[in-house]
Amino acid sequence: MEKLQDVMPVVKSPAASSSRLQLFFKKLMQQKVLLLMSIPFVLWLFLFKYVPLWGWTISFQKFRPAKDLFDQEWVGWKNFHFLFSDDSFYRVLRNTIVMSSINLVLGFVTAIVLAIMLNELRNIMFKRVVQTISYLPHFISWVVAANIISSALAPEGVINILMTKLHLIDQPILWLGKGNYFWGILGASEVWKNVGWNTIIYLAAITTIDPSQYEAAEIDGANRFQRILHITLPGMKSVIVILLIMNLGNILESGFEPQYLLGNGMTVDYSENLDIFVLKYGMNMGNYSLATAAGMFKTVVSFIFLLSANSIAKRLGQSRLF
């Protein structure tokens, strides 16, 4: 961008701009060390982040891995036509949107409730201990979490034992073997793993609330629920709105690991999302072009969502996201 601004005035006055260009290079030479400290990583960014973007061209080709990269057959929008006429693509799209919506709603509600309840704890030591423990599942891998979840939900697992003892069910249920349980299990798993972590930002928002507001409310005779409803929640409002908008922009990001690790042949109609679709078509079936087309669709639509989310945030008077 810097360069661009320096080059633009060329049309207007060559003399002035050449001196500006000279100044630019003179400055650049003085900043040799900064240049050496950053250019290797800029090259790295180009290689690992921008070259794959150029790889999007594969989705307009009939890509054959055996052939040279520049020797591929171009097929126009054919892969996209195939994608949009494929029923399984719409099923995968439905799963993606449903699962990320469930995660969005459950994630928000549980984190906000937990943050408020944590804030209401009066014993600071106890609060700290609960917080620390609640962060734990966020840091462990999905592999470990999936192991835990699948053994808890196994026929002889703790969930079935507990529910049988409470007479909620007569015999053990194969929870991970039925498609219509999958979305619920996934939502609950996401909550288990991330609810503690998600409270961090809300608790930070709560600490910015002026304590004198609570004192004033107390003098006016407001009880605990009224104080939560009229002071704590409004104090969190701007953070909630901004995170909500930001997450609406990520509606096609429903995650990959939990679905891949917890899903199986019996639940595939519900567990398969866009990312798994890309993996399946690309790596398992070797149809690189179709998989790239699906991946590109996801990135472009996500970006459009994010741009709209950003402009909504601006219109609502919240600070911009980027």
Binding site: K49, V278, L279, T292, G295, K298
Partner: peptide, 14 residues
């Protein structure tokens, strides 16, 4: 690069 990523397949080919 935070908003655009090539995705799985182009990354793998690279």
């Amino acid at each position: 690069t935070m908003y655009f990523s090539g995705g799985l397949i182009p990354g793998y080919l690279l």
